[in-house]
Amino acid sequence: MVQRVMKAAGRDVQEIRFCGFGGQGVILAGYITGKAAAIIEGRHATLTRSFGPESRGGACSAAVILADQRIAYPFLHKQDVLVAMSQAAYVEHIGQLVPGGILITEKDLVTVENPRQDIRSYAVPATRLAEELGRKLVLNIVMLGFFTCVSRVVDPESMRKAIQSSVPAGTEDLNLQAFNKGYAFGLEHGVNG
């Protein structure tokens, strides 16, 4: 298993936020991450979510806590990793990212002004990478691939298994391709970011 960056830093709890707007698959990204950790890897995970009354277009956020112990308080105290897929979501949540934390933004959807110097920051052209696969909709899974690569909180193979059992039937291959594409982009551009 890939060594966990956070674990190496002496902590066994990772708090992650995926955010964007409704319709982007934000919740699914959080769901897959939690499932990979809790079900495939046998750790503990909680997923909580928040969204507005809109089915599409409203603010949307999935908060995932991963831990080796039972998790009591299910909401985030802080953010170790922030994955932002919209400008509004980025603006709302960047302040809670811990120093040394990881920021991953969708390059075309988020403009980072006054970048923080105390974090590791990545911009991923996930929409364009998804379009190369012919389905713009899988941008969330591209982001997930990149996130898995640079954060190393969950083993990529666990993530692949979780994706396979979570996406609609018939779309497994497409989603795995999307994941691999994001992961490869991470290997190429991210790991030493």
Binding site: A38, T46, L47, T48
Partner: peptide, 9 residues
Amino acid sequence: ETIGHMTEK
């Protein structure tokens, strides 16, 4: 609502 909407193993 917290328990109903939170996802866990």
